[in-house]
């Protein structure tokens, strides 16, 4: 039998299926992505074997940096404005609508109340370069207490998490925990990274 000579042509691949897959994955990533927030304070959290996930919403995060600076942030823009309004009323400070709006855009902040107004009026790019001194939490001027107190009124469902740097001194963490306990908050979360649970050999 003579061999049939097949003329080779460029193979036209049907790309439709591949395209479907690509866009399916794309949709998945678009929906699940959460951009890394521009953090003013770098916190390198310690790792733990805990398997509880940190919730995304209704959360207050008190960050403690390596140098002991305390930053504070809650989620939700209306909650932030509500909280600022309450704190302003409490401390007799006036904030303009623009300042409130600027405040609501910040994920977290670390400036004392006295310089908050000035901080908010600084334009965005300049503000990112300001070295924020942290929120005072000592017993003489415990502004952290004020913020925590009013944020719980702004959002009663809020849960509290402490995000400490692994190198932070325990003294600062102790101050934060004491502040929370003063407000009768005895249940909170510590934000940690993931770590595999080691096997324990029975003794």
């Amino acid at each position: 039998m003579p061999k049939v000579k097949v003329k080779r042509k460029g193979v036209a691949l049907d790309m439709t299926a591949m395209c479907d897959v690509a866009f399916l994955l794309l949709t998945f990533f678009i929906l699940t992505t959460r951009f890394k927030p521009n953090e003013a304070l770098a916190v390198d959290t310690p790792s733990s074997v805990s398997e509880i996930k940190l919730p995304d919403s209704d959360i207050m995060i008190i960050s403690v940096g390596k140098d002991g600076r305390i930053f504070f942030g809650i989620d939700g823009q209306p909650n932030r404005i509500n909280m600022l309004q309450r704190v302003a009323d409490d401390r007799k400070i006036q904030f303009s609508d623009k300042e409130k709006y600027e405040f609501s855009l910040m994920d977290n902040f670390g400036v004392p109340l006295a310089s908050l107004k000035q901080f908010l009026s600084t334009p965005g790019e300049k503000r990112a370069k300001i070295n924020q001194p942290g929120i005072p939490a000592d017993s003489l001027n415990n502004e952290l207490r004020t913020w925590v107190f009013h944020s719980r009124y702004a959002n009663p469902k809020i849960r509290i998490a402490i995000k400490g740097d692994r190198g932070a001194d325990y003294k600062v963490i102790k101050d934060v925990i004491n502040t929370l306990q003063d407000l009768n908050i005895n249940r909170f979360n510590l934000v940690t990274g993931m770590e595999a649970k080691p096997q324990i050999s029975s003794l």
Partner: peptide, 17 residues
Amino acid sequence: TTTMSKPQAMELNMPDK
């Protein structure tokens, strides 16, 4: 760009003061 690893949390209960 996505941050897949959600931070873990550790529950801590302190006694009532």
